[in-house]
Amino acid sequence: MDTMEINNSEALPLLSLNHVSLLCRSVWDSMRFYEEVLGFVPIKRPSSFKFNGAWLYNYGIGIHLIENPSMEDFDTIVEPRPINPKDNHISFQCTDVGLVLRRLEDMRMNYVTAVVEDEGNKVEQVFFHDPDGYMVELCNCENIPIIPLSSCSFKRRLSSFIKSAPAKCGFMENAMMESLSMEMLNISF
C-alpha cells in the first residue's frame, strides 16, 4: 500500500485535545481515582446514553469513563503490566513533581520515575497506573522547549498569519511549526 504524504494540504482546524475515553471495570473506582489522585471533577453527561459511564473534567481536558465489567473477555489488562515509561500513556503537565511523589507515597501507590535531559534542561517524570492498568504520567515537561526541526522553515503570509512549509517537511513538522508560531504570536501581543 502506498503512503500518501499530506504536505500540500492545509491542516485540519483542530483546537486542542477534548477528551480521552477509557473502558473501565468499575466507573466508581475509576471516578474515585481520577478525582482523588488527579483532581478531575465529575460533570454532567448526556442522558441519552444507555450505558454506565461518567464524564470528568479539569485542566482543559475531559476523561470519559465507559463501564465494561467484562473487560477480561477482550484481552485487556487484568493484571497491570510493569510500569514502563515507554508504554502507552496519558501525560499531564504539573508544576511540582515533589508534591506528586509525596501524594502517591501517601496513597501507597506504585510508581516509577524517570528523568529526561537535553542541552542542560531536565524533565522529571512520574508514571503510575489507574485502577484498570492504564498508565498515567505527570511531568514538568515545559522544562524542555518545543523546538521545530531545523529543516522545516516557514514563511509568514502577511494577510492571514497562516504558515506554510516547504514540500520537504512532513505533516507533523508543519503542524508543530504552525502551533509554535501561533503561540509565539500570542505571547508577543
Rank of each mutant, 00 (worst) to 15 (best):
P145S: 13
I187T: 10
E35M: 11
R102P: 01
V78L: 14
A175V: 09
L185V: 05
I61L: 15
R81P: 15
I147A: 00
D130L: 04
Y134F: 11
P82T: 10
P80Y: 03
S48I: 03
P131D: 02
D132M: 03
S47V: 06
F161G: 12
C139P: 01
M71H: 01
M135C: 11
F189L: 11
L14R: 03
S9Y: 15
S47G: 03
M1W: 06
N140R: 06
S181R: 12
M177Y: 00
K44W: 01
C139T: 14
G120L: 09
A165R: 07
H64L: 02
T113H: 02
Y59W: 05
E183Y: 05
N140D: 13
V78G: 01
M176H: 12
S30P: 01
L149M: 09
C169D: 07
C141H: 10
N186H: 13
E119T: 11
L65M: 10
I77Q: 14
V27N: 04
N140P: 06
A167W: 02
K44F: 00
K50H: 09
L65R: 04
I66E: 08
E142F: 15
V41R: 14
E137R: 06
F171P: 12
E79L: 10
F49M: 09
R102H: 06
N110F: 07
I146N: 11
I162G: 08
I61N: 01
T95H: 11
N186W: 13
V20N: 04
S159V: 09
N18Y: 13
L101H: 01
L38H: 03
L38K: 05
F74S: 04
I90L: 15
K168L: 09
N121M: 08
I66A: 14
Y111V: 15
R103N: 15
S16W: 10
S16V: 05
E178V: 07
E79H: 07
K122C: 09
K86G: 08
S9W: 13
E178F: 08
S91Q: 08
T113N: 03
P85T: 05
S188M: 13
D75E: 13
N143H: 14
G98M: 02
S30H: 02
S70G: 07
A165N: 10
E35T: 10
S188G: 05
N68L: 13
F128P: 02
I162Q: 15
G98D: 14
L22Y: 06
F40G: 01
V97M: 15
L65W: 11
V100Q: 00
I61K: 06
L180C: 08
D75V: 08
